[in-house]
């Protein structure tokens, strides 16, 4: 069982001081300790962006893949060994721009894993361009006159894609986020947590203060997490009041439930020698 110290690598953290990623990192580490997983059982998949560096900072199994492809890599890992605890870390550009194709399909499949999106509404690592969740009017090097395209609503998309666990957190409230991660990890199914992650260097619009003035917790507002329609309505709430917490959860069959031949089996452990193909050969005679 891991404790906090065990989870650090020797890598030096290169996030800007005050970055929302620190809140996500500390929430995640605390969650892992609370969940009591063995380090060897945990596998993280990170994408490309400031968020992706998290794979260097955590002493668990990690796969640092290419931009936008966290979800298919994580899917392959989980399908190959369902006993692993799989966490995907993505960013708003990584998941909602480049990787948008995979988002709806992964949610539909309901692979048992958790996706945490570092949503800072900008591309941090490439110096501050606009993304799918950047606010209208956001000025950046790629939209110097202000973005004219309204942002995506990924929470709504997740709900419409039959998401079985849809939540949102805030890096400025790591304790709340920790609780979301723990609940997600314990839930069987595709667990999606979008996390507001202030980028102190490039996002002048959505700052810690901006979020603190607006976010409220769904669990403190008598929200019924078993009603998808109500959750969808909540997902459209924006402006002065922005909900965080669990929007919706249910227990539907996972992708693995539809694979009776390999349920709970690590594909790496199925014997590879002596596979019997004689029946097929016979049918070809």
């Amino acid at each position: 069982m891991a404790n906090l110290k065990d989870l650090d690598t020797s890598a030096r953290v290169t996030w800007c001081p005050g970055c929302g990623n620190f809140g996500i990192l500390s929430a995640f580490k605390a969650a892992l300790v609370e969940l009591g997983y063995e380090r060897e059982q945990v596998t993280l998949v990170g994408g490309i962006g400031c968020h992706g560096k998290i794979t260097d900072y955590l002493n668990v199994n990690t796969f640092h893949g290419i931009h936008g492809r966290v979800l298919p890599v994580a899917t392959g890992i989980k399908l190959a060994n369902p006993k692993l605890k799989v966490f995907g870390f993505s960013g708003d550009a990584d998941c909602y721009d480049e990787g948008w194709d995979h988002f709806c399909h992964a949610i539909r499949r309901n692979i048992d894993m958790t996706l945490i999106v570092h949503d800072n509404m900008t591309l941090g690592l490439t110096t501050g361009q606009t993304t799918a969740t950047s606010q209208s009017g956001f000025k950046s090097k790629s939209t110097p006159f202000g973005s004219v395209v309204p942002p995506l609503n990924p929470i709504a998309h997740a709900l419409v894609s039959n998401g079985s666990f849809v939540a949102r957190g805030f890096a400025g409230d790591p304790k709340h986020l920790q609780s979301l991660i723990v609940q997600a990890a314990r839930h069987k199914g595709f667990n999606y947590i979008d996390v507001f992650q202030p980028c102190v260097t490039f996002n002048y619009m959505n700052t810690y203060d901006w979020f603190r003035q607006r976010v409220y917790k769904l669990e403190e507002a008598d929200h019924d997490t078993s009603n998808r329609q109500k959750a969808l309505a909540k997902s459209f709430e924006w402006g002065d009041h922005i909900p965080i917490g669990i929007f919706y959860r249910d227990d539907r069959l996972t992708f693995h439930d539809g694979l009776p031949q390999v349920k709970d089996v690590s594909l790496a452990k199925v014997p590879m020698e002596g596979v019997d193909i004689s029946r097929i050969i016979e049918s070809m005679k």
């Binding site: 796969f63 890599v73 392959g76 890992i77 190959a80 690590s266 594909l267 790496a268």
Partner: peptide
């Protein structure tokens, strides 16, 4: 790639 990483 993910599946192979996990040993399949």
């Amino acid at each position: 790639a993910g599946a192979a990483f996990a040993g399949a």
